[in-house]
């Protein structure tokens, strides 16, 4: 049974058209013309309990809008959503008692209160049993290293500290699902890593289903087995990151240390990108030849001492996908190379 089922989800916003010039702005006082913005434009997916999903896309892709619908904040313009047995916006209050959500730029905590008092208040709001609260707090304090600022008012926390406090707050009631909208935005490398480790821990140890949005690929690369890529409101890819790379990553590289200074080290199906004495770097297209085939061909002709396969830079791959809109040209590759 999937814990989230989204079918043909759509969210259109009406945005007032800007009229040019004085006459235009006068006219817009009386009759405003609206332009629809298709923030989410027909997205479908299913998520199984215990998955850790990366929802990736450039700014304005529709990530936050999707998360707001999934958390019951927004009512979609069309399509169906069933999360944890609820239609989020219809039974909002009962539904949100079983989820946790953190929106990167905003805090759920009381601005003027020390962190610990906000947490204590949430304990009462979510009616968390005392024992569960005590255990969770002890665990999160250690894993998120909250002790240094537990008694500091939220308004004086750094961004990283605030994010840690917010994630703790979102998990005290043992939610079945955790939604994180850009949890690492604006953080330095160390802070990002700490949060990623914690998210992984929660997902693995507690089996909490996690969906995190990001426009930072390294979040996804380090954390998520399954990634969904969205752009301009449409789901372009749903599957393992490796599959994407496999298809669009361009050439892979095989670095071989040969036993001799062969004058010609060439083979069919690969070109020599670089040669430094006995060390030869071959480039090959993953679609045309597999690494093992290539190694076979090379070793049939030359003696190999050592070798290594180098993956193309995934960051560059994704950038290329956005810029050249590769996924749209080839049609969305949902399922094909996707996740099972």
């Amino acid at each position: 049974m999937s814990i989230i089922k989204v079918t043909n989800l759509q969210k259109y916003f009406k945005v007032a058209k800007h009229q040019r010039g004085l006459w235009g702005s006068l006219r817009s006082l009386i009759t405003r013309e609206y332009e629809p913005v298709r923030a989410v434009d027909g997205i479908s997916f299913e998520i199984q309990p215990g998955e850790l999903i990366g929802y990736l896309g450039p700014n304005g892709a529709g990530k936050s809008t999707t998360i707001k619908i999934l958390t019951g904040l927004l009512v979609p313009s069309g399509g169906e959503v069933l999360v944890n047995g609820y239609v989020p916006w219809r039974e909002r209050r009962r539904y949100v008692a079983r989820i946790g959500a953190v929106f990167g730029q905003r805090t759920t905590l009381w601005w003027d209160l020390p962190v610990i008092e906000s947490l204590d208040l949430l304990k009462h709001i979510y009616q968390i049993p005392a024992e569960q609260y005590r255990r969770n707090l002890a665990e999160f304090r250690e894993l998120l290293q909250l002790d240094a600022f537990l008694n500091t008012p939220v308004r004086s926390l750094s961004l990283g500290q605030r994010m840690r406090a917010d994630i703790c707050a979102a998990l005290l009631h043992n939610p079945d699902l955790l939604f994180l909208d850009e949890p690492t935005i604006g953080l330095d490398v160390v802070a990002k890593e700490r949060i990623r480790q914690f998210i992984r821990h929660i997902n693995q140890e507690r089996g909490t289903t996690v969906i995190l949005t990001t426009h930072d690929l390294s979040d996804v690369a380090k954390l998520c087995r399954r990634v969904m890529i969205i752009d301009r409101g449409q789901l372009l890819f749903d599957g393992r990151l490796g599959a994407l790379q496999h298809r669009f990553g361009g050439r892979r590289e095989l670095v071989v240390d040969l036993a001799d200074d062969y004058p010609h080290a060439g083979v069919d199906g690969a070109r020599i990108a670089h040669r430094d004495g006995q060390r030869v770097t071959y480039q090959f297209e993953p679609g045309h030849i597999t690494a093992s085939e290539l190694i076979g061909r090379i070793s049939a002709r030359y003696r190999i001492l050592d070798l290594a396969v180098r993956e193309p830079d995934i960051e560059a791959t994704i950038r290329r996908i956005y810029e050249e809109r590769l996924l749209e040209k080839t049609g969305p590759m949902l399922g094909s190379n996707g996740y099972r």
């Binding site: 707001k68 904040l73 909002r92 949100v96 008692a97 929106f103 805090t107 709001i125």
Partner: peptide, 14 residues
């Protein structure tokens, strides 16, 4: 305007 009304809707309280 700051969007913090969302936080109100995220809590299981009226």
């Amino acid at each position: 305007r700051k969007g913090s009304f969302d936080q109100i809707l995220l809590r299981p309280l009226s």
